[in-house]
Each structure stands twice: as C-alpha cells, then as structure tokens.
Design a protein around this nucleic acid. Structure first.
Lengths: 129, 129
DNA sequence: CTTGACCTTCACATTAGTGGCAGGGTCCAC
DNA sequence: GTGGACCCTGCCACTAATGTGAAGGTCAAG
C-alpha cells in the first residue's frame, strides 16, 4: 500500500512515517515513480512503533529492540552480538519498571474516580431523602 | 530540605525541579533568602512525576492528575469539577493501554533473551561434545 | 488534456524536556 | 573576612518528535 493508506490504517501521519523511515525503523520499497510501497506487515510494525514512542521510548532504542519484537522468532538469534543481550535486558527491566509504576498509578486514579462516583451517589440520596 | 538535597534524593537534577515548579507540578516554600524549601513528602511526589514523564505523559496532563495520586485520598473529592472525572477516565484508560502494550512487548523481549541463551547453551554443548 | 488527489523532497517552525553557563547573592567554616 | 559550597534568575542551546507548507512529479478519471 502507499503512504496515505498506511497513515489511515495506523492513525500515524505520513509525515511521521517518513520520519520513522529516516530513523531506520521501517524501510518501504520504492515504486518506479519514487512512491513508497508498504507491505501489510508494516501496519502492525508501525502501531508497535507508535506504542513504544508513546511509552516514552526514543526511536534510537526502538530501532535496536524492534527486530526482537516480531512474533515468529526471527532467524536472527544466531551470532547474537555480545552487547545485544545486555541491551535487551536493560530495556526489558526498564519496561517492567514502567509497567509496575503505571499499574500503581492507574489504580490510584481508578480509586479516585470511584470516590467521585461515591460522593455523587451520596449527594443524590441526600437530595432524595 | 533545599533543592540540592532533593535532587540527590530523587536523582532529578535541580534544573528539572525548577522546571517542574514552573509547570505547576510542585510549589516549594521559600526561605527569607529566596531559597526553595521542600517538604519531605515532595520526594515521593517528584519520583512520581519522573515516572510519569518517563512513561510519556506530558507535564500538562501530569499536573491535572497528580492531585488524584496522593495515597491518603485527599479531601478534594468534594465538588468535583464536571470535566475532571472524564479526564481521569481518559487518562486512566490511556495508561491501561500502555500497560497492556508494554507487558506484551516486554514478554516478547524476554522470550528473545531466552532464545539467545538457549542458542548459547546449545553452542557450548556442541563445543564440548 | 486538464483537474484533483495523490505522492515526492526540502526546509523551516514549534514544543517539550533537558543541559549548561554567567552573574550574582547567602552562609558556613576556617 | 575570605573561600567554597550552595542557592538564585535568566538565558541560550540542543534533541526528539512533530506540524506545515512550498515546489513539483504521477496518475486516473472526466
């Protein structure tokens, strides 16, 4: 598909798709007329990139972990560069920290919302009573 | 405590503490000489801010949800502004999405690391055999 | 064969989050 | 009473991510 369609399917503006390409996150083929051509699997990949960016992970790091995120374990595990494992562990742990942190705070917000609702309910019963 | 001590305790540079203040996230008292004075409870608050920023949440939004994150439910639930609940729900859901997303990808990374280790182990047994 | 919807590159602008420094005040300890 | 460690404000600069728009090529449909 061309860039406009991919943008529509992912919700990521074409501008950003070109930017991600520039950062080495995706490498669309080119048609004879110069247009970018995106394979279907890139839809998921772009969504993944968005999610990672939105979670505060810079593109520089995304580019190094992205190949490890494709589900059917890519053939690439062979001759793993020595630094790669360490990097993955670091990033994995960082993600775990974020997860724990987000869960904790999300639950706080949920409790707060419940408190608001409880207060509203109570107020209503006061009005009625 | 003064800004240097808070910086040390939180790992957040003084420069950033001033920035967070500018963004309305913390409001230290001032000594007669103009020095900022931070109460102890701000240590946790600053850590919370860091975590949220690192998770890709902009300070603008942090400032609106931060009051709802203090653990002993603040007295503030009363006269909840109408938009607040909606905003909290939105942000809570956004956080839930991030959590799911991060868990999924973290697990992918973990599997990849395990694959690396398995490959290394296998290689060793080949050498030995 | 022209119009409109796409696409291209290039470039400039903005925002958020940072880092860093200069010029100057405060205060403790020697 | 001086030096060093701390604080202040203000400003300039940088990066990453993003918006926007100009100037121009492609192509299908009328």
């Amino acid at each position: 598909m061309r860039i406009g369609e991919l943008a529509k399917k992912t919700g990521v503006p074409a501008r950003m798709l070109r930017y991600y390409e520039e950062q080495g996150l995706i490498s669309p083929r080119r048609l004879d007329n110069g247009y970018r051509m995106y394979d279907d699997y890139l839809v998921d990949r772009v969504k993944k990139i968005r999610g990672l960016v939105d979670s505060g992970i810079p593109t520089r790091i995304i580019s190094s972990i992205l190949p490890c995120l494709d589900q059917p374990q890519t053939i690439v595990v062979k001759n793993a560069e020595p630094g790669l494992r360490e990097l993955l562990v670091t990033e994995r742990d960082r993600m775990s920290d974020k997860i724990d942190f987000l869960i904790h705070n999300r639950d706080s917000i949920t409790r707060y919302i419940e408190a608001i609702d409880a207060a509203a309910t109570q107020e209503q019963s006061l009005e009625a009573g």
